[in-house]
Design a protein around this nucleic acid. Structure first.
Ligand code: FES
Ligand code: FES
Lengths: 151, 151
DNA sequence: CAGAATAGGACCAACTTGGTCCGATATTGA
DNA sequence: TCAATATCGGACCAAGTTGGTCCTATTCTG
């Protein structure tokens, strides 16, 4: 396994919609129909992204959500942390107190910490901008998608 | 989240016992009492490790398990894959067919693949030998543990 | 003031995981 | 040969987490 939750997966997809049409305001309804993510789920995700200050929100008629920062200033690691909580590959790599079943007997917690750092590093080194338009891979795969988002 | 299962966590701990007393034969019972991992769980884990050809086994009286390779030839990535299945950070990074909820609309599957590769790389770059004795960290934490394993 | 949108909850169902148990099989030693 | 001891293989259950829904309050526009 070792997979992120579907929430984070969806979250990245939604954010790419923002990143690809920079500065636009999206309503939750728009995002849902554009991304094929169920509407209540979209609301839940956007809520968390606002709390993490990745998105800004504006209520009322013609309200909606908008990116709070530039896409190249938002890292994938930050997004995952906002939606799934802090990345901790084992119980003991999280911030203490360690709740690992075999408390102090464990000889490898230190090594886990290093591996965890490596993964967090890999996640923080990729920005939303890079997710949106990967180098070496043309936009062919996106065309159908774009047509829905930017009418 | 983004954490490995407890099975894999336990698995690493058990394997360090093997690695630290190279070549010894351990019975499941021994490992359980030494590591404080519940016995039935130990059996389940060792079973998987044998199937992955990380451990060898020998039945009958005075039987037990033994390392099938040198500790520096066993990677953490391999262990995790044996116990938790292949590392696939999202549904679509796994070997097709992609079962992601938003099938073809997804513009980021390619980028996920790169992130997934980075994580797999980080996991494969660490060997069991390194987990057993991390550089820069003396064995002080292990003493109590070793006393139980090597009487 | 009425309508439209977010904000913030509680809430439930389905799946995965952690954990247990039992019987079958193989090896050793008396 | 027989009994003891160990792995091997599977089914099995309970608890926790996740994916997903819903309802109400709040805030802004017109
Ligand atoms: S304290 Fe958790 S793996 Fe060790
Ligand atoms: S196909 Fe799964 S994140 Fe896209």
């Amino acid at each position: 396994m070792l997979r992120i939750t579907r929430q984070a997966d969806y979250g990245i997809v939604l954010l790419t919609l923002f990143a690809r049409s920079n500065g636009r305001v999206f309503s939750a309804r728009e995002l849902a129909s554009a991304s094929h993510v169920p509407l209540p789920m979209v609301g839940k995700i956007l809520k968390l992204l606002v709390q993490a200050e990745i998105l800004g929100s504006h209520r009322g008629m013609h309200g909606g959500y908008t990116l709070a920062r530039r896409p190249d200033e938002i890292t994938v690691g930050h997004i995952i942390e906002a939606l799934d909580g802090p990345v901790a590959i084992t119980d003991c790599t999280g911030h203490l107190p360690s709740e690992c079943g075999i408390e102090q007997t464990c000889p490898v917690s230190h090594a886990w910490q290093r591996i965890n750092d490596a993964i967090v590093g890999a996640l923080d080194r990729v920005t939303l901008a890079e997710m949106t338009c990967p180098v070496g891979d043309p936009l062919t795969a996106f065309t159908g998608h774009r047509a829905q988002v930017q009418p």
